[in-house]
Design a protein around this nucleic acid. Structure first.
Lengths: 320, 320
DNA sequence: GAAGTGAATCGAAACGTTTCTATTAGACAA
DNA sequence: TTGTCTAATAGAAACGTTTCGATTCACTTC
């Protein structure tokens, strides 16, 4: 592999001159610079990322961490992050899995966006204490090196509950999500608030884990207990899809008729199932863009403000 | 940041001893090793990835390159790759965009899986010539440092065409994909073969680019020309979904009735649209696993064989 | 014409590792 | 006692950069 040293030799200059020339420093004459750059191109020179980041103490890479790659969730978010980083001199890498946590302390990346339950709060705080810059999307964490862009979960859950209430229900099944999840806590909290202020309303919590399979399990329970039309609020769309699957494969009940169903996230499938799934919408793309924007501010030492992602109700024939 | 040097100082040994101890070399006494490791833990030591990979000339990271993050395509593939790498000492990063190509020549990764049209063949061959190990999923490329795991596109396209033929069609619209794409060429080639051997069959090519939008545009053309029930083969499901969108929003025609439609890829949405989209199926997860397996073989110098991904027909009410 | 100035270039140290070679100190044999 | 061997440890070079400080040399300036 050709290094700066080879170029120096061929050009008859010192390696420092080559480095300056290649980095566009004004310390070197235009003509020598041009000559050096030409030689570099001829030799097909490419800088060695590890060497450079060892010396410069930065890699110009930022990482986004996801719990897993499957699911219909991430495409637009990643696209948003990528766009937010466009032209800022940073490259994006996507990581998943416990193994990959090491990228942060091993200083392979200059900053991280976290949407990954497999990180513990303490772990993240430790990284932040070591000077790493983080943006968290799935928890609340106060630290000078951490910023957060959170969904307005409470507003979303309230919207969903109110929509079901409009239909005159007095009993609502709520299919929850992973226990530790911040989003779940927030959403459940809002559910309870709605119930508290509605005299004749009760809710039944069915525990889920945000997967389709757990949606199917929930559906089974709901169907087994079925006596009259019911309302169901799934804390995410993925589980709602599971409910569609179960209901249509194992029963003759109809969604939107016997089972009034609303989800959360507005994943793409939501608009293709019959009847259309009512849900809570927000722009994943914007979320990603906001996150990367905040992270760049953190890295460059600019002041940051805690942004919030607003949500809206998407009505659908799965309710009413 | 604490380095090996700090540990050495604190333990009263040389840095080489620390390095040996931390790497589990048998050159150092068990007790000193234990002592050093304890200190390292106390100090919260983490190796500096860049320094290590500069010296060792490898990063223990492999990268997968995708054209873009959006689309309903990649989840399972990535999951498969990740699983294939499990416990092999390599971490996975996902990259997208022209910018990120640099990861390869800058030696940030030890190998790459390519499913990304933004790489030119020559570019990849150049990398291979420089000793980089690659597995390509979207083209045919012969080189000792390149392996390929390709879809059986021809079989898939033939299956799709034959399925439509079974319904008695004598005219088939084929919505194609990006011009340069290997998969598209293969599929179109198979289409032509089927047409050649079927006396009374003609096909009309509509150019597409694998996006939903281009599916909608194709649908418009098909609808404008509509006189009697037609058959449509979309070279991927994404465009087929575009056709669903257009037909249901702008016409009173019915898919499966007036328009017999089949796609390719069996994306998740295909099973939720009404009527179910007929398509060509293969396991993305397996594809990814195979790819990573081949890449590891390439990296460790084992002999490789060119694997192939087989496909099957998924019947659906969108045809017939 | 000597001293000073500034631009261009060079040399060397440093970043944090790994690993080759050298040193040290016991253990053992003669 | 002396020498040899071995196990443990230390020292130093190297990986490919960047960057600080030093050097050179052609010009001014007085």
């Amino acid at each position: 592999m050709v290094s700066i040293k080879d170029i120096a030799q061929r050009a008859g200059v010192s390696i420092s001159t080559v480095s300056y020339a290649l980095n566009g420093s004004s310390k070197v004459t235009e003509e020598t610079a041009a000559r050096i750059i030409k030689i570099a191109e001829e030799l097909n020179y490419v800088p060695h990322a590890a060497a450079r980041s060892l010396k410069k103490r930065q890699s110009n890479i930022i990482g986004i961490f996801l719990t897993d790659f499957s699911g219909n969730f991430y495409g637009d978010l990643l696209q948003g992050v990528k766009e937010g980083l466009q032209g800022k001199g940073y490259d994006l890498i996507v990581c998943s899995g416990l193994q990959s946590h090491r990228m942060i302390p091993e200083r392979m990346i200059d900053g991280a966006i976290i949407l990954d339950e497999t990180f513990a709060d303490e772990e993240l705080l430790q990284y932040a204490n070591q000077g790493h810059k983080l943006v968290v999307l799935d928890r609340e964490l106060i630290h000078p090196n951490i910023n957060q862009v959170l969904l307005d979960n409470k507003a979303g859950a309230s919207l969903a509950m109110d929509y079901l209430l409009e239909q005159g229900h007095d009993k609502i099944y709520v299919v929850s999500g992973p226990k530790g999840s911040y989003d779940v806590k927030q959403r459940m909290h809002a559910v309870e608030q709605v119930v508290d202020r509605s005299p004749h309303l009760e809710y039944i919590e069915i525990s889920g884990d945000f997967t389709k399979a757990s949606g199917e399990a929930a559906a089974k329970q709901i169907v087994d207990e079925y006596t009259r039309p019911v309302a169901v609020f799934c804390l995410n769309d993925e589980m709602a899809i599971g409910i569609y699957n179960y209901i249509s494969n194992h029963t003759s009940l109809l969604i939107g008729d016997h089972v009034h169903l609303i989800g959360f996230d507005n994943i793409e499938i939501a608009q293709y199932v019959q009847p259309r799934l009512a849900t809570i919408d927000y722009s994943n793309r914007k979320w990603g863009a906001l996150a990367s924007e905040q992270l760049l501010k953190l890295i460059t030492g600019k002041s940051v403000d805690h942004e919030r992602m607003y949500v809206t109700l998407v009505r659908g024939a799965s309710v009413n």
